[in-house]
Amino acid sequence: MTVDLRVDLNGLTLQNPIIAASGTYGYDDEFSVFCDVNKLGAVVTKAITIEPRPGNEGARIFETCCGMINRIGLENMGITEFISSRTAKNGAAVQIVNIAGSTLDEYVQLAKICDGKVGAIELNLSCPNVAHGCLEFGTDEKALYEVVSAARAEFSGHITAKLTPNVTSIEKIAVAAQKAGANAVSAINTVKGLGIKINPDFTKEIVRGGLSGRAIKPVALGAVERIAQSVDIPVIGMGGIYTLDDVLEFFAVGADAVQIGTANFTHPDICEKLADDLAKFMEDNGFKTLDELKARLR
């Protein structure tokens, strides 16, 4: 029996629902040294801004119990170089371009530049690690509605709005994204946190940034469930996914596809492996399509 892993994300069809998350997989095929990147459903690029950015000064990573905090600060090559050198390198795995702006106008410009050049964008409305933009758009329904609408007006392809958990009601933000014309929403971005190490001489190392990894899975599952109950557009779930069981749990609470982030750092072939594991699980259990599996899980 062959199984059909395809998933329709409301205007974007992926060969399977396993997606590499932004910031953990490079721009396109960097992980091909570890696995067959084209066995993934999609790869989301590192967040890209109008101008190249050097990122934050100082320590950028802090390992925590069951997770890590990062404050990279959107280091990237800028949209111009990206468009001219890094698009459409992958084959079967769809490239989703994550874009981040400091102002509404920057999102508009980025969407305009991407239109016709790339098939799908993910709006980073939730980076906690830069002084301006991103998170400010992601924590206010009205501001988010404006930025998604503005991007929608400029970009004819598939738009995913990536949401932050650092809000009171993520489902209300998701509803605003849907109203503004997003094809899908993805959640969750990292959870705001702080890592601190007190040295024997009482000096301190402190990293304030976004927490990711296994520690945030319950937060993510809760957010995805509430979003899925509130919107009709597809929900892409992420946060602490390491195993096939994790993937099934996200499907069970309403995710249509999943992104894998931090796990790529320890298990660089995990995305390919999860795609294989999912196919085998469906085959072993007699599910012909992903919808059949999801229906059984819900």
């Binding site: 953990t24 490079g26 990573i61 280091e75 790529n264 750092f265």
Partner: peptide, 25 residues
């Protein structure tokens, strides 16, 4: 430095270099 990805994609272990007067990561 503390590293995450090990292959240069996550930009977690960045330092600054001065190459011909241009400071770059």
């Amino acid at each position: 430095k503390v590293m995450a990805c090990g292959i240069g994609v996550c930009k977690g272990c960045v330092i600054k270099l001065n190459r011909g007067g241009v400071v770059q990561n």
